[in-house]
Design a protein around this nucleic acid. Structure first.
Lengths: 226, 226, 226, 226
DNA sequence: TATGAATGAGATTTCATTCAT
DNA sequence: AATGAATGAAATCTCATTCAT
């Protein structure tokens, strides 16, 4: 909890940045890692996903992580300055993917094609949630105190919302505030998937996508008026 | 309001069981409380609301609660067996109110009157969230390990959703699964308010209600087709 | 643990001693007790037996006692200054009975009649243990720290042993120290019954008495040499 | 001797289980220990003996143990999950030694040689009690609640008794049940030593051994009839 | 005589983090 | 680059005893 180091990472940046692993959210400390180090880092990140998934953010123990990663406490702190640091590495990665996804939201016309486009975008969202659900779930549970500046979740989802607001803006029916609508869109999409996965609801994937696409298209993109 | 809450605790004890299983100093569930005890219980419940609001579920300390309630650790454990127990007492009351609210959802016709009825129901929801937001927020942050069987949040919100599904069922457009739609409805409504309150977004209340009513009416109740 | 009162009992002796209950180990404080008080006292003593039996000395809680006695903490401390005080009241009673029993040990001749006399005395011991086993068991578990001056158990059983030593002395075979032999006698008799009762061994009572009488007669009273 | 004890802890961990069930900082059972860890474990076990001896089982505090072992609370819980766990480790060793001793009981003939053999066995018992008295004493005081299934003392002493029953069986005089006799043998031997040590009786060791050997030989092995 | 409520000292336990090798 | 061991601050919980009515 009380991190006395100014730097949020365990090791000093020696200036020889080497991007290690675009996908895995490699920490920013930029040490040169040899093959062995890379493997350890990857094991820790994977272990983090497993543990945060099974336990949630707060119940996750550094001890669990190192046991799953088959390494030691000492090694953990060689790669991350604390539990939050590991978590952040995982979350940043997911956040990037979500932002990229938001940017990929196509123009949604009020006609059938628009609905199909929306459905296909939602399909991507579901896939993203499927793959990163463990981190996203832990993230929404991490609460306002877990990160320095407000809830990372709110920031990122807020940014997600703003991106959408631009795209949605021109399409919304009269009497609808695009910022509010975007926020509602994000809220519904994220939380619906949260319930779906966490409560193990046995929804048929096609039925979900059809229903969500239909609702969102009608509600947010004036689809029903076409 | 605090009367209703105290009710969830004041079960009658007929005094006939002499089992030794209960630990010494068992919590007040199942004790008749005199005036003084009721006041202390109410103080603890109120303190719980304050502390969970300020700190969130995980960061809340029993120590904080007793300090706010101006009482001792010993007294706390006279009324609740632990932090979770106190939290559950608070949550149960909120859950009851949410269920009652779900039952009050009126028939939503696809015309303007239906939208007005929906808006007025959303108004109630917002008021409920306003008043109990502290508990609800802590609740969605409590994570999977906080309660015995899965996340209480999911159970209760799921129940909320089922109740709505009954009401919504007949109104949904073709191609929409009412269970999925209800879940989406709940997801959007709950999480939107969560973002709204937690991120301190400066939305105008009327704009929010107008927008949500419009979106939900169009999306879930085929309002736009009228 | 920290008893600030000089007097080991809750109430001051007002000089109007009234022996209340020869059997139940009434506390020495000598208050005048009306019918209601007598009943409460008896209930507490009985509850003490029940609780010490079920839980043992250390695990017994004042809370358990008052629950079984269907009274309150306040009332408990009206009659006893603490848990130890209640326990002492119960133990003193048993100790008296044991002393009386020791005094009743008859002359044991080395012949068959001696063995019969011994068997009949052991029968009485078994009956006493049967009735007061709960207290005796708790007592032997109370450990050296439970009472002010050494283990009450050792003192009393030691006294028991000395009494026996007088009776046994003249009978023991050559090369046997009567004090040691008496102590061994006490040790065997008490602890055998402890095992018997506590481990719920399904020994036939007659077989036990026959065997013990035989062993003790042969070993301690030179019975086999006759 | 402390090597034997450490053995009961140093089970091999093959490292293949990645279950998350074990709490963080689980005790050392099932960890390979390096030299330093072994020393700490031995220090804790020794400290346990000292503290249980001085205070008895119930009055012993983990705090006392770590102070005597000159280590920290955290370290204690690295090796044992609680006071009972430490105690069990100590008791198991003693129980093993007692079982080994029971197995060493020689054939006891009714003649003088049999008595001498018995005396020499009792000598060993006294030595064992001398060395492990602190643990055995605490053990008989630990009471029924200290261990999962009944009193460990009864189980182990019962096993001790059964072992003896086999050896004693053929020797007992007619009319004597060998199981009962063995139990009585165990009861007398154990409890006599308990009194002897705990009450600091100034018995001469030879007198004790002579007397006990004589009594047991005469009583249990029909020695006087020879 | 009785009692429900309150107390707080003290014991246990956890776990993120650091250290020494 | 890795690791086993150690730490201790902080949190939880218990329960004998006292208080106020």
């Amino acid at each position: 909890m009380s991190d006395t180091r100014a730097d949020s990472h365990a090791l000093v940046d020696d200036g020889t940045d080497v991007v290690l692993d675009g996908r895995a959210g490699a920490p920013a400390q930029g040490r040169e890692l040899r093959a062995r180090g890379k493997k350890t880092l990857a094991r820790l990140l994977d272990a983090g996903r497993v543990v945060f998934d099974k336990r949630g953010y707060h119940a996750a123990r550094v001890d669990d992580v190192v046991r799953v990663a088959r390494t030691s406490h000492g090694t953990f702190y060689l790669y991350f300055s604390n539990k939050e640091d590991l978590f952040r590495a995982l979350v940043i990665d997911v956040a990037d993917e979500m932002t990229a996804l938001a940017e990929r939201l196509p123009d949604i016309t009020p006609d059938t094609e628009g609905r199909a486009a929306l459905r296909s975008w939602l399909d991507e969202f579901a896939a993203l949630y499927d793959e990163n659900g463990s981190v996203i779930r832990a993230w929404t549970e991490s609460g306002p105190e877990a990160f320095e500046f407000g809830t990372l979740g709110i920031e990122v989802l807020g940014g997600f919302g703003e991106l959408l607001a631009d795209k949605v803006g021109s399409k919304v029916p009269a009497g609808v505030d695009p910022t509010i609508a975007s926020m509602a869109f994000v809220a519904m999409t994220e939380r619906f998937h949260y319930f779906w996965m966490t409560a193990n609801l046995e929804f048929d994937r096609d039925a979900v996508l059809d229903t969500l696409a239909r609702i969102i298209h009608d509600g947010f993109f004036a689809g029903a008026q076409a």
